[in-house]
Amino acid sequence: MGVFRLREGLRADGDIAVAEALSLVESDWERQVGNATISAGIIETYVRDLLGFVAVMAMQRITTVAQVTPNMVLAWCLMPLTDGTPAAENTWYRRRSAVRSFFETCRCLGLADANPAKSVEFAQRSGRFVNAFDDVSMAQLKRVSRSTLGDTRTPCALAMVMSGSTTRELANVTVEDVDLAAGRVWVHGGGYKCRDRWVPFTDEWCREAVEQHVVGLRDTYGDDAKPTWLVYMPHPTHPNPTRRAEAASGLITRLLQKARVHQPGQTRAESIREWLALTVFEETGSIEQVALRLGCASLDAAAHLVGYDWVAPSRQDPAPLHRRGGAA
């Protein structure tokens, strides 16, 4: 992480008001947004959450950054919404991410060395739920993605996820990874849960959406277009894999919200891939094909996406009498 250097003018590590620190952090984030190294949408969400965090700290009479503890961060992450309803699990993680990023930037600016949010952990998530979009919602997403004149990036991003890419993989795809002639794209960088693979475009709409965006990038950058990322705009001066992933995820999330199909704690970007998983399974009846298309590292993961029970078929008929428990 490097050596921490205290900001000039501060008497001690963390000796700055929480609200003042947020103002400095927000200014630094705005500078990074201007340099295209941070997604503006992500920063807007962070700042909105952090304003609430600052207000809660003020109510608890926490006057400086140094006074913030992990338990305070945890309590705020789990705090109910203003209407009294419990915060969704996704909200816990979003709030924690905002505070962690805040303290990381505080360290970069020389405001505080420690990051109390770094040690905050929640109870183990329950088994991952599946909430796939239906065909009506997918048609709505397609329509809304093209609602802004001149925007080819959003339809392209939707087409990529519809074809099987995760948002993490989407952040790594460049113009050079797209094979328009063969109607496919090489998706990669999905981590240990996803295998690098070629995925075909789901339908003609997806192919046209990707082609239109790729052709536009080639027209703009010429020979320099090959290493250009499809969704992280454009040619960032300081590439950052985390920021690229946030930009890709934020782009899809904003589309879900604009199309009014986003339900916090229920539907999310992965619901698009879950729709694809069900579509592939209905067409082929093969868990293996689902795993290949979505890059699942295990057949169990693919089976979970489509609600397939590996055990149920073998239990349709009872065992012979002499093999049943308790038989003589």
Rank of each mutant, 00 (worst) to 15 (best):
I272G: 08
I272W: 06
I272P: 04
I272Y: 04
I272T: 11
I272N: 04
I272R: 05
R273T: 13
E274D: 11
W275M: 10
L276G: 00
L276W: 05
L276M: 07
L276C: 04
A277S: 09
L278N: 13
L278E: 14
T279R: 15
T279V: 03
T279G: 05
V280H: 01
V280P: 01
V280A: 02
F281R: 01
E282M: 14
E282F: 05
E282C: 08
E282Q: 15
E283W: 01
E283T: 11
E283L: 09
T284E: 00
T284D: 05
G285L: 01
S286L: 10
S286K: 08
S286N: 09
S286E: 05
S286W: 09
I287V: 15
I287H: 00
I287A: 04
E288H: 04
E288D: 12
E288C: 04
Q289A: 15
V290D: 12
A291C: 08
L292W: 04
L292R: 12
L292I: 12
R293M: 07
L294R: 10
L294T: 04
G295K: 08
G295V: 02
G295D: 01
C296N: 15
A297R: 06
A297K: 04
A297N: 05
S298N: 05
S298V: 00
L299G: 10
L299T: 12
D300N: 12
D300P: 03
D300M: 08
D300H: 07
A301E: 08
A301T: 13
A301C: 03
A301Y: 00
A301R: 00
A302S: 07
A302N: 06
A303I: 11
A303V: 12
A303E: 02
A303L: 08
A303H: 09
H304D: 11
H304R: 14
L305F: 10
L305H: 14
L305W: 12
L305I: 08
L305K: 15
L305E: 10
V306R: 04
